[in-house]
Simulated scan of single mutants.
Amino acid sequence: MRFGIFVPQGWRMDLHGIAPADQWQVMRDLAVRVDERPAWESLWVYDHFHTTPEPTEDPTHEAWTLMAAFAAVTSRVRLGQMCTCMSYRNPAYLAKVAATVDVVSGGRIEMGIGAGWYEHEWRAYGYGFPRAGERLAMLREGVEIFRQAWTTGSATLDGEHYQVDGALVHPRPLQGTSVPGSEANGIPMWIAGGGEKKTLRIAAEYADYTNFAGDLEGFTHKSQVLAGHCRDIGRDVDSIVRSSNFNTIVGRDEAEVEERLKWLHDHLIKTGHTEDKADQAVESMRRQPAVGTPEQIVEQMGALRSAGLGYAIHYFAETAWDTSGVELFETEVIPALAG
């Protein structure tokens, strides 16, 4: 199993209380820390413009700007977004942005891509909010443009949603060209989402990685659906690395786990949650596979590994203030699962 970690960027109110002028330093320092810890293969951000669960005036830093900034201050760790919303940027333009950041980073970019879901954000930025079928059709056309652009240096598509005619993407990404051992398809594509008829079909056709449900039952079922689509098109499902995201709380013992859950509850109250919603969020966390002592997490995630989970991306809500949980995870959990 391989491991990635989210860096707080504000979308989940995880920079709340830190002055905007100081937030980049917090993110930069955490990125540098991850870069120096080989336990983590990758660092990640979300592609959102407004905070969740409610839009607020708390800062939410833009994902691809952060990709370029992280590329300049790190040297080893891979850089991804889970996941970029296809419809927020013209895909030919986005292919160019990603190729440029791949060059800046020395060939370390991961392209997480999905159809998008945050309706308030869509409408606020003037994108409308097309029905799910249209958003998925845009995703399919967009990933075709990516693949052409990164493998040939140009893209042409007369699609229903996107029309490009010889859009040039030079320089091409370093991945697939001048980085030894890199993907022939250019920047690795992570197709995010578990829609069984369309999203997982697109993943079977284009994905180097998938990203869907992290509970054992859901993950197992989605994996079976993905395998069916791969059989239909003659692709080996094991050529696709399956990943999931995890909200993570780890403590040396159950008392420390409770302390961290109490911190989360108090933080949610500070960011505007009602007492009831904070209680519900904490109770939901208790049932998640990456919450518990190191031994409990290893057992729960070991079952997912046995079911085919190859890559786990972890979100620690407290990292802007406290990295002790991350350190415990690095020393006690990752070594037990990485082999």
Rank of each mutant, 00 (worst) to 15 (best):
M111F: 15
Y206R: 14
L261T: 02
F212V: 10
I109E: 00
N211C: 15
G251V: 09
G114R: 12
R140C: 01
T323H: 07
G114V: 02
E254I: 14
P171H: 08
M82Q: 06
I145F: 06
Q25R: 11
A132T: 14
A213C: 10
G126L: 01
A115C: 09
E119R: 14
H229Q: 13
H120L: 11
D236T: 14
V257G: 01
P38Y: 02
A149G: 04
E119Y: 11
R147E: 15
R172K: 08
G10V: 01
F6A: 08
D215I: 02
T210S: 07
V169K: 00
F3I: 13
G142S: 09
Q9G: 04
T274H: 00
I249V: 15
G4V: 12
I269Q: 00
I113C: 01
A312D: 05
E254W: 04
C230Y: 06
E318R: 05
Q288F: 07
E119G: 11
A149D: 00
Q224N: 12
H61T: 01
V101S: 00
R242C: 04
H48K: 11
V143T: 13
V45I: 13
Y206T: 02
P8L: 10
Q224K: 14
E57L: 15
T199M: 02
G310W: 06
E327H: 01
G308Y: 04
R287D: 02
I313H: 01
M189T: 01
W44R: 03
E144A: 12
M138H: 13
A338P: 12
